[in-house]
Simulated assay, not measured.
Amino acid sequence: MRASRFAKRTKPLNVSFEFFPPNTDEMERTLWSSIERLAPLGPNFVSVTYGAGGTTRERTHATVRRIIGDTGLTPAAHLTCVGATREEVDEIVRGYYAAGVRHIVALRGDPAGGAGDRYQPHPGGYANAAELTAGIKRIAADIEVSVSAYPEKHPDSATVDADIDMLKAKVDAGASRAITQFFFENDFYFHYLERVRARGIHIPIVPGLIPVQNFQTMTRFAARCGTSVPSWLAERFEGLENDVATRKLIAISVAAEQALDLLDQGVNDFHFYTMNRADLVYAICHLLGLRPQDMRAPALQAS
């Protein structure tokens, strides 16, 4: 019976939320409305992404600065190797540090030409996320570094073992947490976790979950990042292309089932790819047993 779950839980439930920087006034309003909605849940941190090829770099920086200035949340700024020399990336790290950022999500990043292009390190830049992690820790040892992990293998990795080799290199360089690419079959996560632990990697491997806002868009995204989309999931969204209200109900059901199963199997840390939409994520957190820590959390200041 699921009703006894909350009574059995002895470890605290920890969540983090990922947002992307807005590029229109409407998206700006949606982003900050979502942040304000989710803030009372007391996330460990909120992360802000770069676009493909680092294309949203300045907007990422601006969003992080506003989170620091206008909220009580802890920001984790994404940083990639793409399109910059080591000196340029190091300067960004120093700027973040001066602004109060103490947590960076270090990523290799997508090819500058977008999905499908072969990744080429920038001349004079960091070649991969392990080198980037080492560079961050060299500049400021007290910056916490999170990195990515891939339960179904990074699309550019030859094998799962090679992928885990890279994760090990990132940990050896100073990473203290890994956040997984989203997945829909929990067995992928647990099998991956077994292989990672067998390699002597003991940092937290936090599952990344994505509520499906739009099935077709998600499917295209999944194909680019190597996530398989099971047939049962496609069947649940079949025929709902023009039925937004029902899609939301199905999305909450699917994500809640996945999260509750992870919780039943001892997982207490969750990272949500919010797509800048708060309602689905808030509902899922509620079903997990998470409640607002302070309903009087300060509202965002007007920009």
Rank of each mutant, 00 (worst) to 15 (best):
V196R: 04
L167N: 03
F190K: 00
I252Q: 04
F183N: 00
A283N: 15
P43Y: 03
R65Y: 12
G83V: 07
Y50I: 07
T60F: 13
A198E: 14
S228W: 00
G54A: 04
H103A: 09
L31V: 01
G266T: 11
L240Y: 07
G83A: 13
R108L: 07
L280F: 05
F270C: 03
L132V: 05
V254M: 00
V160Q: 15
N242F: 12
P230V: 03
K8Y: 12
A251K: 00
R197L: 03
R65S: 14
Q265M: 07
A99N: 07
E87N: 15
E152K: 11
P298M: 05
D172E: 09
D294N: 14
K137F: 08
R57Y: 13
I67E: 03
R236F: 06
V93E: 03
H61W: 13
N268I: 05
E28W: 09
L31I: 01
T159G: 11
A256Y: 02
I284F: 08
H202S: 14
Y97I: 06
E257V: 07
L193Q: 13
Y150W: 13
A39Y: 03
I143E: 11
H191P: 00
T56A: 12
T74M: 06
V171P: 01
V147I: 05
T55C: 15
L31K: 00
G116K: 03
L240F: 07
H191L: 11
A106Y: 06
A129V: 05
A141M: 05
I67L: 12
K11M: 09
A169E: 12
K11A: 15
D142G: 10
M218K: 03
R102S: 05
V89Q: 08
A52C: 15
P207I: 05
K153E: 05
A234N: 12
G114Q: 00
K248D: 09
R118L: 09
G69Y: 11
G54Y: 06
V267Q: 09
A76F: 04
F221V: 01
G69C: 09
N186S: 14
A283L: 12
V105G: 02
I35M: 15
A259E: 01
M166N: 14
S148Y: 10
K11R: 14
F6W: 10
A99G: 02
A299N: 11
I164M: 02
S176V: 15
R86Q: 08
Y192Q: 10
D165K: 06
R247G: 00
A62T: 10
D156S: 14
I203G: 07
G100E: 06
S231P: 04
K153P: 02
G109P: 03
H286W: 12
W32H: 06
R199Q: 12
Q120D: 08
L13K: 00
E144A: 15
A234P: 02
S47G: 04
L280T: 10
T274P: 03
A98E: 14
R199A: 01
R199E: 06
P155L: 02
A198K: 13
N276M: 05
H61I: 14
A127D: 12
W32M: 04
L233D: 01
S33L: 01
Q213V: 14
A106H: 05
R224S: 13
N128L: 10
Q258G: 10
S34E: 02
